[in-house]
């Protein structure tokens, strides 16, 4: 896969494996948090990344920015492989690549004022033309915080306001790409909408590209141009947001979507739910073959041995399942028809 001009970030077989344990007397185990992800993030888009906790979605986000060291594969940005850049060269790239964290309580230094928090990256990268304070105030206004708060400390703010501070800090260096790791899940419902609108507005104003990581499918659906579904370290489905919601191909995606309760009692009363059995298996010893086969209603023997590859089943709609292909995209129909493993084209 060559790097394409439309892509801002291009991941090739990116891996993050951790070794745990392993001393003189005990055997080491490998956690495959991210296990070979190949993915393009296009300029100006929002790519949604969904999955259950422990599926590796946050690790993937951090690995792109080298906040977690990738252990294999490549991550191209601007023609450079971020995964293999020396530390000093990576530091320069950090200016373009920022992150917003889930917990606005934990990710702000409680001993720094808002002005210091937002001003720090400006100072680090020497970006202030005109005073730092002026720039900080401008940023605060951009994210909807009053300039008057510049001397206050994080604990004086509510969760939503703290998330705004986190966003302002990320924006301070005029980044091109932002990884937003569950930015709304710790917030109240009425505040979630505010932050989502803010993120959308900023994207339009500043020509940003987002990787929006969330377990909240409603939010992902609302914000994302394309959605990637992750399961145990691998991307299992990738499609435009509309398609993935309207016609999910993977049984896992279907279950995820069906699990989200709809705020409408009439729909809730009639719709059929797919309830997955059990929990996500441990990434220490992930199931062989298709990692989802332990919870999949359509699993056949071949699923336990064959590792499915992500393939384009419909235009722009990729899925990793051996029981579907471009000619027979509906797994349920294939199952009824008694089709087993299918050839990919």
């Amino acid at each position: 896969m060559e790097t394409n001009d439309n892509n801002l970030i291009s991941l090739q077989d990116l891996q993050v494996h951790y070794r745990i344990g392993g001393g003189i007397f005990s055997e080491a185990k490998t956690v495959k948090a991210v296990d070979g992800v190949t993915l393009d993030i296009r300029k100006g888009e929002t790519l949604g990344l969904v999955g259950e906790s422990g599926c590796g979605k946050s690790t993937l986000g951090k690995a792109i920015l080298r906040l977690t060291e990738p252990t294999g594969g490549k991550a191209f940005y601007n023609g450079k492989d971020l995964a293999h850049l020396p530390k000093s060269a990576m530091r320069e790239q950090r200016k373009d690549l920022q992150m917003i964290f889930q917990d606005p309580y934990a990710s702000l230094n409680p001993r720094m004022t808002v002005g210091q928090i937002i001003g720090e990256p400006i100072r680090t990268f020497g970006l202030a033309n005109g005073g730092i304070d002026a720039r900080v105030q401008e940023l605060m206004e951009t994210v909807g915080l009053s300039r008057r708060f510049i001397k206050r400390y994080p604990h004086e703010f509510s969760g939503g306001q703290r998330q705004r501070i986190g966003i302002a800090r990320a924006l301070a260096v005029d980044p091109r790409f932002i990884v937003a790791d569950e930015p709304i899940s710790a917030l109240d419902v009425s505040i979630q909408a505010q932050i989502m609108n803010l993120l959308e507005r900023l994207q339009a104003e500043k020509d940003l590209t987002y990787l929006f990581i969330s377990h909240d499918l409603r939010a992902v659906r609302h914000l994302s141009d394309r959605v990637a579904v992750m399961y145990l370290g691998k991307i299992v489905e990738l499609a435009p947001g509309k398609d993935i919601y309207a016609e999910p191909l993977m049984p896992y995606t279907k279950a995820l979507i069906s699990a989200v309760p709809v705020p409408d009692p009439e729909i809730e009363a009639t719709r059929e739910r797919i309830i997955l059995k059990g929990d996500v298996p441990s990434p220490i010893n992930p199931p062989a073959g298709c990692r989802f086969h332990t919870r999949c209603a359509y699993a056949i023997d071949a699923c336990r041995t064959t590792v499915p590859q992500l393939a384009e089943i419909k235009p722009q709609h990729f899925a990793a399942c051996i029981r579907i292909n471009a000619d027979n995209p509906n797994i349920h129909a294939n199952h009824e028809a008694g089709l087993g493993a299918l050839q990919q084209k």
Binding site: S190, L217, R221, S224, D225, P263
Partner: peptide, 18 residues
């Protein structure tokens, strides 16, 4: 009720916010 993103609605439309 309005500020919950509804999957049936078109993407890109600004979400109602309190």
């Amino acid at each position: 009720l309005k500020s919950v993103p509804d999957p049936a609605h078109e993407q890109g439309k600004e979400l109602y916010q309190i």
